[in-house]
């Protein structure tokens, strides 16, 4: 069974998912960071594939991605680093990146590597749903790789029902209209939106703007859990990753 499905079967509340870019802050940090996160009890990890033009990301993730690229990170190198990860890493792993990198790598080769390295899902924010369902869905399904889809406060009900049908794994619930790294402000409409998505059959995690224990708990109270990216990268940068994860529970 796909480790993502297994996770949501075993745990419905307070799922903590962490995002960080591969090869950051140092090229060889990918695996040690994964190990640390697992040891600290993190449930799920999204590994960022660094890209030169990350449209949906704020300045912190952009500059982390740039540093990773300057370190010499590439998608192939990431797969090489992950080659032996499954000897010790049992958490579900997701690759998050932009479509150009995957397309250039070759979709078949990409899925093949995902299978070999034990990747459970991908998040490709700029691959449109229609293109995915028409051209790629069957390949992803055959490879057993979930394509995690995003919903946002702007997503209309009509579109939501289409997304729900095509979704697998869980829904990535974007908290607000912003790139990554903004602050999350509580509001009635937002809570209503969270509740609407949480009511769907498919599990959901809230991301964008989750940065500490309080915002994590607030978000997790409306869904199965939440995703922290920017705040974790800041901690990585300061060498306080361990302490940061500790502070969340």
């Amino acid at each position: 069974m796909n480790r993502i499905d297994q996770l949501f079967q075993n745990k419905q509340k307070d799922i903590l998912s962490i995002y960080f870019p591969a090869g950051y802050p140092k090229l060889g940090d990918t695996l040690p960071t994964l190990q640390m996160l697992q040891d600290k009890g993190v449930d799920l990890v999204e590994i960022g594939i660094p890209f030169s033009d990350p449209l949906a990301d704020g300045p912190v993730i952009q500059s982390a991605a740039k540093q990773a690229l300057d370190n010499g990170m590439s998608l192939q190198l990431l797969f090489n680093q992950l080659r032996d990860a499954r000897k010790s890493i049992t958490m579900p792993l997701i690759l998050m990146g932009y479509w150009n990198t995957v397309y250039k790598f070759g979709v078949d080769a990409f899925l093949d590597e995902c299978k070999k390295t034990g990747i459970d899902g991908v998040i490709l924010p700029d691959l449109p749903l229609e293109e995915y369902t028409e051209d790629y869905q069957s390949k992803f399904e055959a490879a057993g790789v979930h394509n995690v889809l995003l919903v946002t406060p702007q997503t209309t009900d009509k579109r939501l029902s289409i997304i729900e049908k095509a979704a697998s794994g869980f829904l990535y619930m974007v908290s607000s209209a912003a790139t990554t790294g903004g602050a999350l402000q509580a509001s009635k409409e937002r809570e209503e939106y969270f509740r609407k998505i949480a009511a769907l059959e498919i599990p959901s995690l809230i991301g964008f703007g989750i940065h500490d224990k309080a915002s994590f708990q607030h978000a997790a109270s409306f869904s199965n859990g939440a995703i922290i990216g920017t705040a974790f990268i800041k901690a990585l940068e300061k060498g306080q990753a361990n302490e940061f994860i500790g502070s969340l529970s």
Binding site: F51, S52, S74, L75, Y103, D126
Partner: peptide, 21 residues
Amino acid sequence: DIGFIHGSKTMLMQDEDGQIT
């Protein structure tokens, strides 16, 4: 060669790893 930039599939200058140059 073929790639994706600023929301559109088009021809594009990129390296072997799909990073836009």
